[in-house]
């Protein structure tokens, strides 16, 4: 029985989704404690040569690739057939999947097919003598539960983007062995789901929240359009990414929840996190508590958010945004 650690390399545009690099990094850490194991990238798709090349980075010992016309889709019901078959053919010990929109669906679908255990949205994975412990947040991140998979293989785990660190640069490394996996299972594969269309988002100039060195974040204390506009202006001046909590999203001042920070949104770990009017609910804190410097403004001196901050100011969030904007503009 091999002890290999597989990392799913999802195709995003023309290269692996950033979470792939984060998981490869984590897998290498796990490998140290799993003698004889290899870190392997998993590529599933159509015309996968470019993806195989892009996924072959330093730290990846092998790439398993399944290539088939039917795999040119975002339908997890089709992709799970390939993924589960690859696992059955090569029997890895661990399978890591980034919890992207696709990964969050493909991981449970594949685990269901393999009837094995999947730990959702791990914030850490520890390899001990006895077992592999996946640290999984529950109750909105209030508690972390150790999840392990005692009797079935592989141990599957999903991890949200931004949880683990990855080096800023990925060294291409063609030394990885490439295994073209037998794809005959796909010849008769049918899915009851068909992807009819895919409309790519228009490109924006906004700084990506997960890449920003500074994040400014709005909580319920920023409750007016005017205050939010000022916050945007402040983010702009600071070259900061802009995020918000669930309670802020519920005010309807943003069209969607794409930049919501927390357990059901994005995880960020910027150098500086500036929170305005955030109460500090567990489900939000879980998405930002790896930030280096945290500064919080809240009018309630008892706000939980202060416990997770380095500096705190008791005051009106909207007014402080204005004051800080003025300062920065000078």
């Amino acid at each position: 029985m091999n002890r290999d650690i597989w990392v799913f390399a999802e195709k995003l545009g023309n290269s692996p989704a950033p979470v792939y690099y984060e998981l490869v990094c984590k897998a290498n850490e796990m490998k140290q404690k799993m003698p004889g194991s290899k870190v392997c990238g998993v590529v599933i798709g159509k015309d996968t040569d470019d993806m195989v090349r892009a996924a072959s980075i330093r730290g990846v010992d092998a790439i398993y690739a399944m290539d088939h016309d039917r795999l040119d889709t975002l339908d997890a019901c089709m992709l799970k057939i390939a993924f589960a078959d690859m696992v059955r053919q090569y029997d890895p010990e661990v399978v890591l999947v980034g919890a992207t929109a696709l990964g969050s669906e493909l991981a449970p679908a594949t685990a269901g097919k393999l009837k094995t255990g999947l730990a959702a949205h791990c914030v850490d994975i520890e390899v001990t003598e006895e077992r592999i412990n996946c640290m999984v947040p529950a109750f909105g991140g209030r508690v972390i539960s150790e999840i392990y998979v005692p009797n079935t293989r592989p141990v599957m785990a999903s991890v949200r983007p931004g949880i683990f660190d990855a080096p800023a640069e990925h060294e291409a490394d063609s030394a990885a062995e490439v295994i073209c996996v037998d794809n005959s299972i796909m010849n008769d594969a049918v899915s009851p789901v068909a992807m009819v269309s895919f409309v790519e988002d228009a490109p924006t100039n906004d700084i990506k929240l997960e890449d920003a060195e500074i994040v400014v974040c709005a909580g319920r204390g920023v409750s007016t359009q005017e205050a939010f506009d000022k916050l945007r202006a402040l983010a702009d001046k600071l070259d900061a990414g802009i995020g918000y909590t669930r309670s802020f999203a519920d005010t309807g001042l943003v069209p969607d929840e794409s930049n919501m920070i927390g357990t059901s949104g994005k995880s960020v770990k910027p150098k500086v996190f500036l929170g305005f009017g955030i109460s500090g609910a567990a489900h939000h804190v879980c998405g930002m508590n790896k930030s280096d410097l945290v500064i919080t403004v809240n009018k309630d001196p008892k706000a939980k958010m202060f416990q997770f901050s380095d500096y705190g100011i008791v005051g009106d969030a909207a007014k402080m945004v204005c004051a800080l904007l003025e300062k920065v503009e000078k």
């Binding site: 255990g117 991140g141 539960s145 999840i147 005692p150 508590n289 945290v294 380095d310 705190g312």
Partner: peptide
């Protein structure tokens, strides 16, 4: 197939200086 091990509280490691 998954079993639960220990539970941990999420504790803050920071101490906040009020300005």
């Amino acid at each position: 197939p998954t079993q639960n091990g220990e539970l941990h509280m999420v504790e803050s490691t920071k101490s906040c200086t009020m300005l």
